[in-house]
Amino acid sequence: MIEAILRVNHLSVSFDTYAGTVRAVRDISFDLGPGETLALVGESGCGKSVTCRSVMGLLARNARVEAGEILFQGEDLLKKSNREMRAIRGGKIAMIFQDPMTSLDPTMKIGRQIAEAVTLHRKVSRGEAKRRVLELLQLVGIEEGEKRYHQYPHEFSGGQRQRIVIAIALAADPRILIADEPTTALDVTMQAQILDLMKDIQRKTGTSVIFITHDLGVVANVADRVAVMYAGRIVEIGTADEVFYDPRHPYTWGLLASMPTLATEDEKLYAIPGTPPTLIDPQPGDLFAPRNPYALEADKIAEPPLFPVSGTHFAATWLLDPRAPKIDPPEAIRRRARERGSL
């Protein structure tokens, strides 16, 4: 068993708001191996961003870590001081954000912005820092580095800016890269380019990636493993193959069903009915139950734990309990599995 580079154990995070305490992350656990890409999938508000910010130590002032530990290279990040975290942030664990149009300081040359990321974590001379910046620019595919170094963000397109953001993230050669919906704001062509770039970089540098997204199509492209989150919990986790072709949680079924494939005929697109719950004073039982066409009585009483499907595949649904009735996944899911099998 290869040693995990990041271990999140039973993390729970709440927010104190005027409306009440929002229990955003409720007992999450997962591992991240070296060089692997883990996708965190789920609707807005499911807790995927909060989880990653907890790792980075970038939570808002009104956030409280109720329980859990985040082990990075053996040390619990939650126990570290702000100063220690600053050394790790951007240095060992880096993050890239969603909107490239607003992620860069409009009044500072991009060369300098990247150089900052270098000098924050490495004691190098200005000349060396600049060389590193040019190296990075080449790495992310921005041509004419010398000239571009002195330009401002508004002189670049959206796709180029995202590359620059990636360059910043990679500046200090981080072990983990957290990408918070990095392609959501881009058009499809750029999306493909950025994803290719990220895969390419990962191959070259061996960085582990946590990829947050709500777009399963993207997941299919990049992820080694997938964790599906709902209402602050991981409801299913496994390898990409397992989750795509043998999903066990009704929520995962819903997500996959709402994703059209080439074989989907002109029908109304499927969408999971209802909306995610607010996480203030969550009701007892499985929070997905109200929207779950396969809900059991048990779902109203207690939240299901993660049941193992295989050594790498787990799902938190009472359907996997030996006492549960046997239910087949919906037709769309089975069809996908069949198509795959026939390839």
Binding site: R89, G90, M95, F97, T102, S103, D105, A117, L120, H121
Partner: peptide
Amino acid sequence: SSDYIELARAKGMSEIRIAFSHGLRN
């Protein structure tokens, strides 16, 4: 509260430095 400040934080910059380097000029 803008994104580029968040990014600067993610780089590992201290609040004070962020305020002077990036915040002030804007």
